[in-house]
Amino acid sequence: MPYYPALSIFVLSLLALFVKASITSVIQIISRFRSRRFLLPEDAALARATPVASESAFVQRCANVWRNDVENLPFFLMLALSYVLVGGEPDTASRLFGSYVLIRYAHTIVYLRGLQPWRAILYLSGMAVCWMIVAAIVFRMIKIAG
């Protein structure tokens, strides 16, 4: 079986991002019940409430965080896994993957609080880390081929 030195760092990053997404979901559910505003009749019935046309602004913000994660995390995970599969160095993986995870946690916090320009800065920082992973993959492949 092949040995991938950075695999454990990838797995830890994946788990940390899963925890973040799960926390966001729990916050959304709690906020929905606190606001007592439910779009779906079955959800409203569960809470003994009347369905509404729109959810609270904070619940919508939670949904936006979730959507942003769904749009961005797959790219990071594919890049990170590619880095692992080309035999990337664990130290580099720790720095890059750890940075990305911390940036995404911070991004979620500022997104939920509606803090600009920090949300944009953190989003762009996460993209920059992804591009650094791309560069690390290219350098690793050049090293392998050379």
Rank of each mutant, 00 (worst) to 15 (best):
I29E: 11
I29F: 14
I29Y: 11
S31T: 11
S31H: 05
R34P: 01
R34N: 12
R34E: 13
S35L: 06
R36P: 05
R36W: 03
R36T: 03
R36V: 05
R37F: 04
F38V: 05
F38A: 04
F38L: 05
L39C: 05
L39D: 01
L39S: 03
L40H: 10
L40A: 06
L40Y: 11
P41T: 00
P41V: 01
E42W: 06
E42N: 06
A44I: 12
A45W: 02
A45V: 08
A47K: 04
R48C: 11
A49L: 00
A49S: 02
P51V: 11
V52K: 13
A53Q: 05
A53H: 03
A53E: 10
S54R: 06
E55C: 01
E55N: 06
S56V: 05
S56Q: 05
A57S: 07
F58I: 15
V59N: 01
V59G: 00
V59Y: 03
V59P: 02
R61T: 15
R61G: 04
C62A: 06
C62Y: 01
C62E: 02
A63G: 10
A63P: 08
A63C: 07
A63N: 04
N64D: 12
R67Y: 07
D69E: 15
D69W: 11
V70S: 01
E71M: 04
E71P: 08
N72K: 03
L73Y: 00
L73P: 01
L73T: 02
P74S: 10
F75Q: 10
F75N: 09
F75W: 14
F75L: 15
F75G: 12
F76T: 00
F76Y: 09
L77P: 00
L77Y: 01
M78L: 15
M78A: 15
L79K: 09
A80E: 11
L81D: 03
S82A: 15
V84L: 01
V86W: 00
G87L: 09
G88H: 09
G88F: 08
G88V: 12
E89C: 15
E89V: 14
P90Q: 03
D91M: 14
D91G: 12
D91L: 15
D91S: 14
T92S: 11
T92G: 03
T92I: 15
T92N: 04
T92F: 02
T92Y: 02
T92E: 07
A93I: 14
S94P: 05
S94Q: 13
R95V: 13
R95T: 14
L96V: 15
L96E: 07
L96T: 15
S99T: 14
S99M: 14
Y100G: 08
Y100N: 12
Y100C: 10
V101H: 05
V101L: 05
